[in-house]
Write a protein that binds this DNA or RNA. Structure first.
Lengths: 237, 237
DNA sequence: TTACCCAGCTTGTATATACAAGAATAATGT
DNA sequence: ACATTATTCTTGTATATACAAGCTGGGTAA
């Protein structure tokens, strides 16, 4: 925690964003406004905004102003992109089916992963994502109802759970692991797999300001899906 | 390519690093030196150094100076860490065996991946990484001999291929894909797998200033290995 | 009404200056 | 010889100023 002035301005802005007070595309005070508000020079206020922009948290355009960056671009930092976007990018036909929408008692492993008491009610959804009517990924998700009470009421054919969750409870932290698994019978049925084919499984936990939001499990057939990554040295964006 | 002064200083520094002239931990001219050399103010030179530092390319310490960051920290950006380090971090016993060290004629798919003519000689190595004497990962790698002529002479029980390659030909770009596969017989033998177990496969191509350096294939049993990722929102380092 | 220009906001670049703080070396005193 | 101090170089923070460039909205002229 820097006691430097520019650093305090940064944490102030971050606090507003993380608490949800400043949503996506919300306008951030201008350099001059911040300079007045915090009684610093414009260059100092500018530094705070610039560093947040470099970190991908704000977007600024000359002549217009500074705005909170969309979390969509943030999620690309997760290296695990929105599957709906990926499919649409390939110009394929995307569709989605919700096969489970329920509230259940959390068993021990789920309760631990969500940081709640075992036996508490948690939301449980299973979605199947299709590319050209062929199942591409199963998304099983457990959500903490205290943080996102209206989760089950959403229409997930319109908005993906990840999109909805980042809007309602801006994420501050995410952990994910990738592994290769053998799918069980239920999973094979959902994915239309007849012979046991290795699957790629991504497990992701996301935190918001108020706690663990959700615990997700994304399973895709190894023959149909792969994660991609790209890095250029010394360039950003 | 910005024509801005600070941007030109940045590209100048990046050019030195990418060409290999300024290796790891090499000292970068100080703010005042750069200011003189490029006939700009110290603040402008400072901006170039600061932005490169934020991007993880330089490290600076007050009172000491600015230095080229180690590529080890860069490779963490790849989200795929050095397996030797991972094992050692778990306080396990790490060992490595080279089962193939040869120069072969590149077949079409390999030649294309390496950007050379089919039929050219390319280096081919297969290493097996062990954790507590149990095979953890097979690393198959094809290397362009024109860029790294002394590749086969290295002792890969001492230095990993990735470490050696980044030293000899600093990487400017990397692409990798992750997928779940069923290992073939040869792979099962190397990994000591009796029943066909799903494996996690990472394919990575790395570029340097002068072209495609290597094409690597990292295969691990799904039950023993997983990739991990971590993201905090609004913090760096 | 429509098209145009301009004033006023925004961010972007660049400079000169000042002082603080960390790290290494040189000079000094015991 | 050793420990301490002082100097000097480095990066870090902060300010005031200037001009450039992009966007918006309002006013003016056709």
């Amino acid at each position: 925690m820097g006691t430097a002035k520019y650093s305090e301005i940064k944490t102030h802005i971050l606090t507003q964003i993380r608490s949800g007070q400043w949503p996506e595309n919300h306008r951030v005070p201008s350099e001059n406004q911040l300079a007045q508000e915090f009684a610093v020079s414009r260059m100092t206020a500018r530094r705070a905004l610039s560093e947040l922009t470099d970190a991908g948290i704000l977007t600024r355009t000359q002549g217009l102003g500074s705005f909170v960056a969309s979390f969509k671009s943030q999620s690309s930092l997760l290296e695990i992109r929105n599957i709906a976007d990926e499919v649409k990018e390939r110009k394929s036909n995307y569709s989605c089916a919700a096969v489970v929408l329920e509230s259940i008692e959390a068993l021990a492993p789920i309760a631990i992963a969500l940081g709640v008491e075992p036996g508490t009610q948690v939301y449980h959804t299973v979605l199947v994502h299709f590319e050209n009517d062929a199942p591409l990924q199963v998304e099983e998700r457990f959500v903490n109802p205290k943080l996102v009470p209206e989760y089950l009421q959403q229409d997930f054919t319109e908005i993906t759970p990840h999109e909805y969750l980042t809007q309602v409870a801006p994420l501050t932290e995410a952990r994910h692991t990738v592994e290769a698994i053998t799918p069980n019978a239920q999973m094979c049925a959902w994915l239309n797999l007849y012979n046991e084919e290795p699957c790629l499984q991504v497990i992701r936990r996301t935190w918001s300001e108020r706690g663990i939001v959700s615990f997700a499990r994304l399973v895709s057939p190894g023959s149909k899906y792969r994660l991609g990554g790209h890095l250029t040295f010394g360039k950003r964006g």
